[in-house]
Structure formats: structure tokens, C-alpha cells
Nucleic acid binder design. Structure first.
Lengths: 219, 219, 219, 219
DNA sequence: AATGAATGAGAATTCATTCAT
DNA sequence: AATGAATGAATTCTCATTCAT
């Protein structure tokens, strides 16, 4: 019963977008169950009748919001072609993007997980999201292993799940639970732990894997 | 308005316990908002009127359940006096307990986080819980650093947050999202990554930090 | 989701009965679609929440009312053992009961027909109701045919459908649409038409099939 | 607020007619209350805004549909000048038209009755409709009585109400409730019962009032 | 203590109708 | 004339909570 934007006039598109935006904000602020359709309408500045012109239910709105967020995370986390050559630098670059992507959407992904408990469809979306990140991580590790730069005995997938989880979880703890750290410190630290954990062999460019500088940066 | 067990007759104590148990089960199964007071009563085998003899609201029941769970996690994760001397073995022992503790209660802690968004009290409980684990991890790392067995430049707290998060997050992914792994493999893997990440220097007892055995165990 | 009376305390039974009674009255007065659950509650003197203690929806209430009415019609229309021997008198006795049964419940049966258009279950109930009356009529005719008192060439079922329909329809026109006639006249007239239509041979007891007296009574 | 056809351009007339036709179909299919203005518009292929260009409300549309149907029934049931001379044949001819007229519009007339419960205006239309048929039937009977062909003691109006009701009701049972019969059989049967009921004296042309042929026709 | 009937605030949803374009 | 976005009144239903027994 979702009405897609393509069908709509520009006025309709505006209204619809306002609802999605308002919904996203409110979901983030209050959590799924605490959001009332009427609240979303109020924030979007439309009557509740209008809501049902575009969405059949709160769940459908959330579906839309979730899909948007998942899409954004996919996009946001792609390490571009400008990625550095140095393996450690690559890890650090990836972790920066990774951390930011999760930090930005931490709340919504948490909510997605909560909703996924009861809803098959959302579970699918969630697993898809995770799978993309896991694959990307596993792929990176496999490449390093092939280059002889990382411990070849590590199972790439499981390692990616665990170390990726470390970053994801830190994003949550950092933003949602107020663990204090600045971004640079956090990324440096996560990257150091990650690199060491996979047994990354420093290359000739010689990166400084000791996070001494981090302590300074973090203070 | 909570009526504590101490005040009650043995019959009352039994009824109250049944409600807490039923509530815990249902919260785990369905998530906070999807649990109706009536459902809990039905499972506990009492009328809904009776619920209010013991608890003033669903929230109060959850408070009780959450406190119980947090208490159990504190207890369950204490590395007993029988802990091995070998640092790696200690890490592995701790991770086993840690993983089990989080795995057992993953759902409820997630719920606690969700509820904590809107409720100051629950937020306190949650931070307390995390703090205990973080302190314990940081303490362990500091000791290894003092013994010259771990990289002294690592910030103990932040490291504990990150590596502890890795374990906690894996517990969730493992059980709630169905990431396949058997416990032994998971613990070995987590411990390897953990030990390497902190730069644990193998002691003379010579533990095998290459997880070759892990791949075998996991296959 | 209907809660049956047997399960309930006497207070509950009273409340439930009040809802059914109020529902019946309002359905009769206003027709199915015009009845609001709240109206029924107001008339029964309970809050709307209470309604849902006993019925899951307006439809369920109607189901109950309809079943009650159908039951009453079955009971009310049975020609007792005190039925006269004379065939015409039997027809008249049957028509009196028949007319009264339909007249009493005309509105509700009409409503049942309306609801039956869209609902399989109600359609079944309606057909059942009709079938009982058709069978009874057909049986009576067959007996007369066997006794050589009625035209043996008439198809019993179809005849019963048509003549029964005449009575049923008259009940409706009479009460719901205000066609003026007193009961005695109506019954005499219907019986005369019925008896003649099936070619009833007057027995020796000699009943007066000319409805001369009727005109007097009806004036 | 009804906009009559005369006022309109040909385009407007077409749109209006489409709405009336669509409304009629949907009313027949679903019943009055189940028809949404939007459904009618969708079937007519116009936007819902357009509906209000021609009708002020759903009720007004129904008023139009009902008037159309009543008009058609008046027209359809007139026994033309080609009517046979033989009284029985006239009855049969009339019953055929009568049955068809009611069968075609059974649903809508039923609906009209339902709506008439709550609406004075529709009640008037309904009574008018009935009155036409009753008068016509009574008139026919009176003529037969004057010709000495029917029982002169029967009250013409009441007889017409009852026997006309028989036909009308059969039309409903036949089509709406699925009582099985083919048209020829039904008409023959109804006519036989009707003729006998009024004590029709067979004329010299000797019509066969025994419905032997009917049973054959019905097989 | 326990029961379960009753309550009513609150939330979702539908749909006739209006109105700017 | 036609469109379709917007509105909000009206209705259904849920469920936490109270209270008489």
C-alpha cells in the first residue's frame, strides 16, 4: 500500500518526503514503539489522514526509513578509489568510514534489529546489511592473506564478523552510551587493534603501529 | 509500589516469582513493547488482577527482571579462583564466561538498552552493567602491561571497551542473528584476536596463538 | 473470540445478556450497518471496553443475535401435537404460527440476508433457516398428496418455496411496510389461497373455504 | 445538489452516466453500505473529486440509481397490447414479466428497503413502487371477478399483495439464494398456483391448469 | 491473596468531502 | 470539467489499571 514517489505530483512528493524525514527523526529520538503516527504527522505538518495517503501503517513508514538508511550505509561505507596503498592506512580509512556509517545510524539499526525479531521482512533487510559489511571485511582480509601480509590461518568470515562487530559496537557505545573518545583516537585505536589482531605485517613504508600518538590525541 | 518478596507469605512469594519468571521469558521472546501484562499473567497462571498485587506496572516488572539479569551477569562473569596462570589461558577463560554471559542475556540487555533511551533509571542500570565489565577488562589489561606482557602504550579502558564490545557483539550476532559457529571455535577465535590485539607476549609455557587448531575445531 | 455464557459468573452473564438484548433491539431499529458498537454499549449501560470482554466485534454480536433469532423461529413455528385433524385447519394453524414467526423477526431476517451477501457463515445460517421451513412445508404437502387431498402433480418442494414465500413476504409487507390487515384476516386469506393453490379437497367436516367472513373481519 | 444531465455538455453527460452505471453495479454487488464513493469513481474511471461535480453524496447517487431502477420496473412489467385473451395465459404472461422484473432488480429493491428504514424519501419511493404492482394485480383480479371468472369473495387488494408477494419473493429466493429452477417451470408453477388460488374458472379454450407439463419442463 | 468484570484513555484507521491547481 | 492532495470527523479496538467480591 506504499505509494511510491514516482507516481506523485511534486506537491505529493514533498509531503511524502516530509513524512519520511519526520518519521526518521522521531524513530531515532524515541524508538520504534514509542512513535505514534500522529506524532509523525504533527512533525511533518500534515493531518493524520494524509499519512494514509502515502503509507498504510507506521510499519510501512519504518520500512521506507529503514531501506533509506540501509541504502545510505551501503553508499557511505565504500572505500573509494582514492584509497591509500599502505595496508594499515587502508584499514584505517575503512574503519573511519565504517565507524561513521554505524555511528550515524546506530539508533536506527538497533531499532531494525528490534523490529526484526518479530518481522521476517525486516530480518531479511538486516541480514542483508550485515552481510554486505561482513563480505567486504572478509574480502579485505583474504587479499592481505594472499599478499602474505596477514595471518593465513584466520578464517576470513569469522574474523570479519568479530572485528567488524568491534567497530560497530564501539560506534554504538560511543554515541548512544556516551563513551568518551574523539573520532581520531577511536579510529586509530580500532585500526591498531584490528591490524594487530590479524597479524598485519608492517610494510617497508613503515607505519607506526604503536598508538603512542593516540594517547596524545585522545587526551 | 513493588512488593518485595520479604514481606510475603510463601504463597505470595511463589506467585511473585512466577510472574518474574514468566515476564522474563516473554520479554525475551517478544521484546518489551510487545509484552502485555495479560500475557505475563496467563503464562504465570494468575489473573491480571493479581499482577497488581505485586507490581505497579509492566515497567516495574521489567525493572525487576532487568535487575535479576544484571545480577546474574555480574556473578556469571567472575573468573573464579581456579583461573589458570597462563595469560592466554586466562583470556580464553574470561572470554568463555563473557561470551556465555552475554549470549544468555543478549536479548534482555538489548531490551534494556532500548528502554534506557527513554528512561533515566534504566540508563543508569545499563551503564553500571557496562562499567563493571569494562573495569574488569581494563584491570586485566593493566596487570598484563605491568607484567610486561602487553603493549604498555594501549589505553586500558578504551581497549577494554573495544575488545569487550567485540565479544559482546559477537554474542549477539551469534545467537540472535544466527551467525554460525560453535562455542569452542568462537572462544578460541575471540581470544586469539584479543591476545594479538593487545600484543600479548607468549610466555614460556608457550601457548599456541596461531589458531590453526581453531580451523580444525570449527570445521 | 466470543465468550460463551457458561464460562461466566452470574454478573458476567447478566452483562453479556444485556449486550445481546441491546444489540438485537438496535439492529432491529436501525439495520446492521447503522449500528455502532458504542450505541449498543450505551443502551446496555456498559463501557465500550466491556463489549470486547464478550465479543470481538460487531459482527460477532450479530452472529449471536442471529443465532438466537433463528433458534426462536425454529421453536416458534413447530405445529404442536394439539394440531387439528382437519387439513384446512392444519394449514391455518401452521400459517398462523408461520406468519407470527416471520413477522416477529422480519427485520432481523432481512438483515441476515443482507449480511449473508458478503459473509459465507451468515449465508449458511440463512439457508439453514429457509431449508427448515421449506422442508416442513414440502412434507405437509406430500402428506396431503398421499392422502389424495392435494394435487399430486405439484412438486412439493417448489410449491412449498413459493407458498411459504407468500407467507414470509406478507409478514414483511404487513409489518415493515405497513400494509394494513388484522392478523385473523391475513391468516384466513393466506390459508385460503394456499389451500386452493394446492387443490385441497374439502373434507366431510366441511370447512368454509370461501373467505366471505374474512371480508367482514378485515373491514 | 444533483446536477441533472440536461445542464451538461456531452462530455459531462458521459461522465455522469458512467458514475450512475458504476454505482448501480457496485450497489448490486456489495450492498449499500459497503460501497465507497471511491470504488464507484474507480469503476467509472474518474477521480473522486469529479464525483462531487455531479452528486452531493453517495446517497444522492443511490437516489438516482433507485429512481432509474424503479422506472425500469414500471416499464418492464406492463403487459403490452399483445397480451393474450385467455385469462390463464394473461396471468402467465404477467407473471413472466413480473418475475423477470423482480429478478433483474431484486438486489437493488432489497437495498432500497434497507435504506428506506432510515430515510423517509426512499420509503416513499418504495411504497410507490409496490403500490403500482399491487394496483395492477388488484385491477386484474377485479376484472376477472367481474367477468365471473374468479372468486368474487376475494378482496382484490389483499389477494394481489399476497400473490404478488409470492412472485416477488420467489424471484429473490431464486436468484439471490440459489433456489434451483428454470424460468419456464417457475413461471408455470407460479401461474398455476396463482390461478387456482383465485379460483380461476377455466374458459372454453380449455387451458391445461394441471401442471403436468411443468414437471416435464422442469426436468 | 486472588479473581475477573468493568473502565476509559489512547491509538489506528477509514472515508466522505473540500479545495487549490 | 477534472484532478488528486489534504482534511478531520467518526469509528473500531486494545490494554493498563481499578475495584467489588
Amino acid at each position: 500500500m506504499i505509494v511510491k514517489s514516482e507516481t506523485l505530483s511534486s506537491r505529493g512528493r514533498r509531503t511524502r518526503a516530509a513524512l519520511v524525514q519526520a518519521g526518521r527523526e522521531m524513530f531515532e529520538e524515541r524508538g520504534y514503539d514509542a512513535v505514534r503516527v500522529d506524532d509523525v504527522c504533527a512533525r511533518a505538518g500534515v493531518s493524520h489522514g494524509t499519512f494514509y495517503t502515502y503509507f498504510g501503517s507506521r510499519e510501512e513508514l519504518f520500512r521506507e526509513v529503514a531501506a533509506t538508511v540501509v541504502g545510505e550505509m551501503f553508499t557511505a561505507s565504500v572505500v573509494g578509489p582514492a584509497a591509500p596503498d599502505d595496508p594499515y592506512a587502508r584499514i584505517e580509512a575503512a574503519n573511519l568510514l565504517y565507524l561513521r556509517a554505524w555511528a550515524t545510524n546506530s539508533r536506527l539499526v538497533r531499532m531494525l534489529e528490534q523490529v526484526a525479531i518479530a518481522d521476517e521482512g525486516f530480518r531479511g533487510l538486516l541480514l542483508e546489511l550485515r552481510e554486505v559489511f561482513v563480505r567486504r571485511g572478509a574480502e579485505g582480509l583474504r587479499r592481505l592473506q594472499e599478499q602474505g601480509l596477514a595471518d593465513p590461518s584466520l578464517d576470513p568470515r569469522l574474523t570479519a564478523v568479530m572485528l567488524g562487530g568491534m567497530v560497530e559496537h564501539f560506534a554504538h557505545v560511543w554515541l548512544d552510551l556516551g563513551e568518551h573518545a574523539d573520532e581520531r583516537t577511536a579510529v586509530a585505536m580500532l585500526s591498531t587493534l584490528w591490524a594487530r589482531a590479524i597479524g598485519l605485517t608492517p610494510t617497508s613504508q613503515g607505519n607506526n603501529m604503536t598508538p603512542t600518538s593516540i594517547k596524545e590525541a585522545g587526551s
